[in-house]
Amino acid sequence: MTSTFRDVPSDAEKSALAWAHTARFLTTASRMDQLPQSELPEIAFVGRSNAGKSTAINTLAQQRRLAFASRTPGRTQHINLFEVGPKDAPDALFADLPGYGYAAVDRRAKLRWQEVMAQYLELRRALHGVVLMIDSRLGFTDLDRRLLALIAPRVATGEVRLLAVLTKCDKLNRREADAALAGAQQVLGEVATENAEIGVALFSALSRRGLEDVAATLRGWIAPAAA
């Protein structure tokens, strides 16, 4: 899936956005053993600390403070879970994972977060999909490629779906946006297999570009018939 830009959302996109708007805080955990054992499929949001991850989650859910978007990157120190779907019968969980790569964070804390995040991405049985936030102006950095390599085995088998979201695309002109998409597709092609479900979308929390595309993709992961 590659991002498109339409003035009028389709009915499926409107339904997907309404579904995402139901997101509500469930719990927070600093260790794997603190996470609830749930049968609900989980969609994890990951990315560099300044890639706009929390802002993207808030925009998707249409809630200002669902995910903590600090002016100081690197503040998210836990895995935060959010229920999505009807309150009496949620059908998915969003997982906001700690950002990575912010130099000002204490090294010991960074190592601990990285270990917990790696354990989650490699071992969490409920993990259904990963939304990898990439700053569209920078493309895949070395740290992003390491994260991609970490989840590649589960993506390759089709066990975990992957969507690369190229954030802050409002800061790019048309030529730069096309180049950002092409660069991301090339990187993702390195881990693509016959069974892998991989997509890429341009996204802007400011202009809301790509919002419907992202919501529809995530909804499709959970309820394919609704996509």
Rank of each mutant, 00 (worst) to 15 (best):
Y102I: 03
A89D: 15
A227C: 08
T193A: 05
A104W: 11
D144I: 01
L148S: 09
K110F: 07
L97C: 07
Y102V: 04
V46Q: 08
A103V: 11
G47A: 03
L188C: 00
A92F: 01
D178K: 15
A152H: 07
G52R: 06
E42K: 02
Q34A: 10
S30T: 11
L93H: 05
T2W: 14
R161L: 05
M133Q: 07
R75W: 10
K171M: 09
R108W: 08
Q37R: 15
T157R: 14
E212S: 14
G101Q: 04
F45W: 14
E212R: 05
R107T: 13
S136N: 12
A227R: 13
E83Y: 13
S38N: 05
T55S: 15
R112V: 09
R31L: 02
H128G: 03
H128K: 12
S38C: 03
A177M: 12
A89M: 10
A177S: 13
K14A: 12
M1I: 13
E190P: 00
G74N: 08
A51I: 04
T4C: 08
A103L: 09
A29T: 01
A216H: 06
S49F: 06
R174N: 13
E190M: 10
P73Q: 06
E115A: 15
M1W: 11
G85F: 04
F82S: 03
A95Q: 10
F94G: 01
T22G: 01
G220T: 04
A201M: 04
V46P: 02
G220D: 04
T167N: 13
R6W: 08
E83A: 14
E194Y: 02
I198P: 00
T193R: 10
I151G: 10
W19P: 03
Q186W: 07
L123S: 13
R24I: 12
T193E: 11
P224R: 06
R161K: 15
Q63T: 04
G47F: 04
A226W: 13
R154S: 10
V131K: 05
S136R: 12
Q77T: 09
A29Y: 00
M32V: 11
A205M: 10
E115N: 09
C169Y: 10
D142V: 13
L40T: 00
E83P: 01
D88M: 09
G74P: 02
D88E: 15
P36H: 02
N195T: 14
D7W: 05
